[in-house]
Design a protein around this nucleic acid. Sequence first.
DNA 1: ATGGTTGCCTCGCAA
Length: 256
Amino acid sequence: MRVATWNVNSVKARLGNVLDWLRAADPDVAVLQEIKCETEAFPRFEFEALGYRLLVHGQKSYNGVALLSKDPIEDPKTGLDGDDGDTQARYVEGTVRGVRICGLYLPNGNPAGTEKYDYKLAWMDRLRRRAETLLAAGTPFLMGGDFNVIPEARDAADPHAWVDDALFLLETRRRFRALVNLGLTDAWRALNPTATGYSFWDYQNQAWQADNGIRIDHILVSPEVADRLDACIIDREPRGRDKASDHTPVVATLSE
DNA sequence: ATGGTTGCCTCGCAA
């Protein structure tokens, strides 16, 4: 089973690119972030025509996540527990072939020192609690998405440029480590221990052309899923296209 | 250095 994560930066603006990639890469499961449309406005027909079932959690203009699967999606859940007043569409969850697939768009948090950063840190605490709950229940799971976290300096082409950024601040990295330290595996790092790889390049300053990227899109897996990891790749091809998203897909391969 | 780019759909905000 191959599971992909991709921040598409508007599913409507990116529809052709996203469908092209799904046809070529043919993942069994994909989680998409920043669909930037309401649930009812998601272009369902085009994805269903490729054989995907859909679980969509959208909102107007901003955020929005979706889970795509060629196999049935059981026990669908939208929204992350822990804050009933949170109206931002950033989390979707469903079980596919016995694996709980969690698709997430973690808050950016910039600028640091504002309520935006407080919201990010609180959201990370809620995500950790969700992972604890799934672990306690013995549920095999995979968390994929745009974490908006640069885990280590080697995950940025120019780490000095990010030292005061919400994606790389100590409190951000500390919470990411707390999540991983529950016993999760960063699939790409585990399978590419000495590699340099990025999943995001800013639209500005020719970041893509200069390969001035950061690795912020991650697939974290629980121990039983980690034992099934065969590969994890970052597919840079879509980032080089016309009208590209600023993110590119990450794909994990699990043995059966 | 407060630029630079993209998407939403308003004339600014978020990334």
